[in-house]
Design a protein around this nucleic acid. Structure first.
Lengths: 242, 242
DNA sequence: TTATTCTGGTTCCTACATGATTTTGCGCCG
DNA sequence: CGGCGCAAAATCATGTAGGAACCAGAATAA
């Protein structure tokens, strides 16, 4: 009797949701080894469900860029981001997020300053009691940036950014020893500019934060790569086109 | 005997591929009526396949934003883009594509001027013999913009842009009477700037092209909507929209 | 050493059961 | 007589089980 042993309220409906959470956690924890192939049958039996929900979950994970699909050969986990991929990702963020910060820094009801302030005090409090600071920090970072992007009010940009799952990927290679204080301080700077309704300052603060953030992550690759800064060419290029 | 009658070489493997092409065409042609729910069982029986490949296809179509999924209620086709959604889409393009044009307008092997020139002469020739100009024009537009984006050399930006499927959506509301000559002329301007390796000019030409393109599409909404241009109010707001 | 065949394993699809959701029809109240 | 609400039934999404085709790798023969 292959009954589902996961949640006591094992009615039925939570199947795909449970499987998604489980597989995603497995990949993020590195239990499946980046680049390895995923056996649908093995996973389904190990989780006590059928193959259909597992396949559905795999297709969703493909949208998250956590697995790749080869027709006729099944699914494999994606390898960790290398430095060029990380740079591409942060260049994209540098294209989108300063624009979002500028859009958010206006005197309107959409101004997210209050929500950002709450988020900042929450994370400060949470780090005091500090359990699993790494997870907390990434979660805070996600919420902070998502809030700003949301208040920019462009669903297409928001969706495109969400599809990159940048926080999800950076979580995979987040060094355990990073000090969150710097990140939070930069967040506070961004929030102040937004609260003051100064678009230029907000844009620049966000751009600076992303550049610094990339530099911090790039140090995880130290020794093997060049570490040249994100923007190489001279004149301070406007990311905002008229 | 529920044999598959689609392709004569009905080995088996083409199932999901066939279904995908078929459903996608149905939605784009409007045969399923935007906003209507999709009955998995009906589709599977009508195409002579089982429910599993249909579900797989629906999940892929969800990534294309052609259907939406409600847990427990299945899939529905997405409604046609309304004016605000179209504006959001073109604002995203205005954020990404001028940057890509700038990045492409450099004196490197990645410079796509030659490919763009071939693309332009191809479409000009194709329009002479003109069969189904609408389809040809959208296909050309897709290739032209994709080429520029590709040579910008950022996979993340490229993927994020591809995920918007902007040409796929604009195809759904492409007016039949639009004259492609203007579009092609603007493309030629962009190409010239890229060929001349003038980043500023390329960036501006692309931005101008996208603004004009939006204006042309917005005319499809004439009568029902405000038709305010992308940047409505007085001070140059750097395309921040409410 | 190279080509061919065979076998093990895995993906992919079909068919069916089940539970939730929507719709329809009937009775009741205003 | 018309509108509202509840209940029963049909409908449909979701999950399960199993089988057939297919790819990969190994062993054997030339």
């Amino acid at each position: 009797m292959p009954t589902r042993q996961s949640s006591d309220a094992s009615k039925s409906k939570a199947a795909v949701s449970d499987v998604y959470a489980s597989m995603r956690a497995s990949i993020l924890k590195g239990e499946i080894a980046p680049g390895a192939r995923i056996n649908i049958d093995a996973v389904s039996r190990s989780l006590g469900v059928s193959q259909t929900p597992v396949r559905e979950v795999l297709q969703r994970l493909e949208g998250d860029n956590l697995v790749v699909y080869s027709p006729g050969r099944g699914y494999s986990t994606t390898p960790l981001l290398d430095l060029p991929a990380l740079r591409s990702l942060f260049e994209f963020r540098l294209l989108v997020e300063p624009w979002a910060a500028r859009s958010a820094a206006v005197d309107r009801l959409a101004n997210p300053a209050a929500a950002l302030e709450k988020e900042l005090s929450d994370i400060r409090a949470s780090l005091q009691t500090g359990v699993d600071a790494r997870q907390e920090l990434v979660a805070h970072d996600t919420r902070f940036h998502d809030t700003i992007l949301l208040s920019a009010g462009n669903p297409v940009v928001q969706h495109a950014f969400a599809q990159t799952h940048c926080h999800l990927h950076t979580f995979r290679l987040y060094p355990a020893d990073i000090d969150g204080a710097i990140t939070i301080a930069e967040h506070a700077t961004v929030r102040e500019a937004i609260a003051a309704c100064q678009p230029d300052r907000a844009e620049e603060a966000m751009a600076e934060h992303i550049r610094n953030s990339f530099a911090r992550f790039a140090q995880a690759f130290e020794g093997k790569a060049d570490l040249s800064p994100l923007e190489s060419d001279g004149p301070p290029r406007r990311h905002i086109v008229i």
